[in-house]
Nucleic acid binder design. Structure first.
Lengths: 131, 131
DNA sequence: TTAACTGTTCTATAATAAATATAACAAATA
DNA sequence: TATTTGTTATATTTATTATAGAACAGTTAA
């Protein structure tokens, strides 16, 4: 598995896991229809509690990134992924605005910020190419 | 004051306050040398505890956005603001990567993301112009 | 059928972070 | 002198996070 946690981070484990799986989808390491480990197996592999995994899966299910079939297991949503909702845009703005404000204070230009985003964009997209 | 809190947000009050002040600096509503209210007065105005304000001020002081003179009060740093440090870049990447990954999953192009950042950039910069 | 495994739900507990509440101190000012 | 400043200390309450163990209902494999 390509998943590990940063226990120094202030982000909760279940949020980190949710994000790692979304990054996996964005980089096409995880594709529609791909199976994910059961909550119990993944918990064992990663050395965390079953409920922590389940919490992350519930978030992903609610947002439409994965499907959970009663006893067949967990799969990356085969029917495609959610659109750009207003909820998502609001979340992005709430988290991005402080970062951009601080970047401005520290003297970054619009070009600097654009470059930073572009770099991250490609970094995420081409994560499956390395290794 | 231009400060209010979103009690629905999962961001702690002292973090929200820190960010609002940084946004104030970025939009030039707050300029080098400008005084900030005392911890007690601001706490009273905003209806929160003194220690919550103090926590935000300490963060801003540590990062170099404000100066705190023993009994003269709190001022926006008159000697300029901190550079783009590696700590800051690491924080940006840690918070921005999941947002960009999710944006990609939801079908946003590099151009879409760039536009979103540009919009926020101007929105922050021209916050002082309205009203 | 039996046994093992699935997601789901429930109750409980421990650890940590966030916010509040008082109180006190030392330095500066009005 | 009296007030205000930032700072520090202790204490309490609340919410979140993570863990623990157990049970249930449906599915699959032996």
């Amino acid at each position: 598995m390509f998943i590990s946690f940063d226990f120094q981070s202030d982000a909760p484990i279940y949020v980190q896991l949710r994000n790692k799986i979304i990054e996996g989808i964005a980089s096409k390491q995880l594709n529609p229809g791909d199976p994910l480990p059961s909550v119990r197996n993944l918990a064992k592999d990663l050395g965390v509690n079953m409920h922590t995994i389940n919490k992350a899966y519930q978030l992903l299910k609610t947002d439409g990134f994965i499907q959970i079939h009663r006893q067949r297991g967990v799969v990356i949503n085969p029917d495609g992924f959610p659109e750009v909702t207003t909820d998502f845009l609001e979340k992005v703005e709430e988290e991005l605005r402080p970062l951009i404000a601080e970047a401005i204070c520290r003297g970054m230009s619009q070009e600097d910020i654009r470059r930073l985003c572009d770099n991250l964009y490609h970094q995420v997209k081409e994560e499956g190419a390395e290794e």
